[in-house]
């Protein structure tokens, strides 16, 4: 805690929630009027999540598919509004900003997407994909746009002479670099990477991860890194936050999490990572299916799959509590 600047959160989330409501269709409404107990389908994709990311940090958000990671990332990036809760950028509540201030903060938080194909508009040339936003927001002028783009493209390892090409003329890894260049072109300082390497070949994953690390050093970036795979984020994260069915179950500095995982779910996730030194050891995937988010289990969401579950787990939601400095976990086992 020596340097105040280093430890002030760039981004802070306070009990953020997102519910998706699928309205009843016409037949459903009539059935409901007639006394049937049909109800609207509600998915509580993100359920009261709080977390913070300090300047220069890489925080990873990890959990199985469908646990609400992308939804959280989209809310942080301003793509969809939260149902409740607050998002603070450098201490300012994003929802309270309007006009020019809102736009400025919106540009400071950018997102890199999972799908290197769907995330690039197939009808636009590279120069428009990367160059549209900086031009619209007057970060550059039409006359200087070429130099501006050359600079961004070089930084991302792209050949600037490809400016007139269309996305389909690039490989998956290059397309992901295009997505990164598009985000960097508006000079952000916080980046949400949503499974940004999951769709790539393993050899290319490493290149893109290295690019992220290099860009962080060059441009003073702060990352929220989303992944379903603990192994992918191990070497780039300062801290890891584990999510299960919309809730945070554990958060700790990376080394501590790998050395002393507290939550039974985290322990199970760690057992799933294939280790070089344990290639022939028994591989035990987590028992049981992920419960339906439409109808999550009572109490601790993890209890149907947890080997230590007790009656209390089936009824009472465990709260996130500190188990060591900087290490939080939400499990009843911690209360003896």
């Amino acid at each position: 805690m020596s340097n105040q600047e280093q430890n002030s959160p760039v981004l802070e989330i306070r009990s953020l929630s997102k519910k998706f409501v699928k309205p009843l269709d016409f037949a459903g409404k009539i059935a409901q009027k007639l006394g049937s107990n049909i109800r609207e389908e509600v998915v509580h994709a993100v359920d009261g999540v709080s977390l913070h990311v300090n300047k220069g940090e890489v925080v990873s958000l990890v959990g199985e598919s469908g646990c609400g990671k992308s939804t959280l990332g989209r809310m942080v990036a301003g793509i969809m509004p939260p149902t409740s809760g607050e998002i603070l950028y450098k201490g300012q509540n994003i929802a309270s900003l309007t006009g020019e201030d809102a736009r400025e903060v919106a540009l400071k938080v950018q997102m890199i997407f999972q799908d290197p194909f769907a995330s690039l508009n197939p009808r636009l040339r590279v120069r428009d994909i990367i160059g549209e936003a900086p031009l619209v927001h007057k970060l550059t002028t039409a006359a200087e746009q070429d130099d501006y783009l050359d600079d961004v493209m070089l930084r991302c390892g792209l050949d600037p002479s490809y400016k007139r090409r269309y996305p389909h003329q690039f490989s998956g890894g290059q397309r992901q670099r295009l997505g990164i260049a598009r985000a960097l072109a508006v000079q952000p300082d916080f980046i949400v990477c949503d499974e940004a390497v999951a769709a790539l070949d393993v050899s290319i994953q490493a290149q893109i991860l290295n690019l992220f690390i290099k860009l962080r050093e060059d441009l003073d970036l702060t990352y929220l890194f989303i992944s379903h795979d603990l192994g992918v984020v191990e070497h780039i994260s300062d801290r890891i936050v584990i999510m299960y069915l919309g809730r945070v179950v554990e958060s700790a500095p990376t080394e501590e999490l790998f050395a002393k995982p507290n939550h039974p779910y985290t322990q199970a996730l760690l057992r799933e990572i294939p280790r070089l030194d344990a290639r022939h050891a028994d591989f035990t995937p987590i028992e049981g299916e992920i419960p339906s988010p439409l109808d999550p289990p009572q109490g601790c969401h993890f209890h149907p799959r947890c080997p230590f579950a007790t009656d209390r787990c089936r009824q009472e939601v465990p709260q996130l509590k500190s188990v060591a400095p900087g290490h939080m976990s939400a499990c009843h086992l911690n209360e003896g």
Binding site: I79, R103, A106, F113, N121, V136, G179, R182, V186
Partner: peptide, 14 residues
């Protein structure tokens, strides 16, 4: 629903 539209939203395009 494709991500390029989300990307444009994130870039504060009108």
């Amino acid at each position: 629903r494709k991500e390029y539209v989300e990307a444009a939203t994130c870039l504060a395009i009108s």
